[in-house]
Amino acid sequence: MSNMRRMKLTGSYEAPIGTTMYVVNTGDWRYQRPVTIAGKCRKCGLCSLYCPTGSRYEEANAFATDLRYCKGCGICANECGAAAIAMVEEIRT
């Protein structure tokens, strides 16, 4: 293959075979984050059922967000019947 430079190849498979889970870091997509207003949360758990990334979890007094995979879609805030979640702009410096 005279027209090709040497490639740095990382996998040994010739055909598309999965060796590990390719984890997509959905946390990188977020431009806004859910913030739980502690006094309003009734701990009904609805937000954790609707969250597409499984990022809502239970804490002692309210539900909270695992920001590693929260993609900021706002579904939790939309579904919360107690209006206990505010979506706040994500600012990274």
Binding site: T10, G11, A15, P16, I17, G18, T19, Y22, V24
Partner: peptide, 10 residues
């Protein structure tokens, strides 16, 4: 695992 969802670099 044949043909999993494969990101761009792979």
């Amino acid at each position: 695992s044949v043909d999993p969802l494969t990101p761009g670099d792979i």
